[in-house]
Amino acid sequence: MSIYILCLILFSVGLYCVLRKRNLIKIIIGIGIMEYAANLFFILIGYRQEGRAPIYAHDQVINNMVDPLPQAVVLTSIVLGLALMLLLVAISIRIYEKYRTFDITKINRLKG
């Protein structure tokens, strides 16, 4: 239980960073931290006490493996997070070239 709460606290640190910070790169870092926390949460769910990795080996029994499905899911999710990060950083580099600042309160030409 406390593990889950710690993981969600990590998520909250990321969320706080996205909501309150002004530097574009800090916001991207916040999104990255949120993604890490979400992936970790998935794997925590699948853990079995005294479990072992879900790989067949000749000499070991198979009835105490950890849950393999969340691992496959997180495999995909890590890559989706990378794709998002690529796009966000590319956009923010171009924004810096246009606006000459990384401060999101100054990047405010669209109004209404």
């Binding site: 997180v74 890590i78 890559v79 690529l86």
Partner: peptide, 22 residues
Amino acid sequence: VLKAPDLAIMQLVVEILSLIIL
């Protein structure tokens, strides 16, 4: 530690890529 070796490798690689980009 949570017995997910494939993910550990994948996370390391993706982490390094993200760091380079950042």
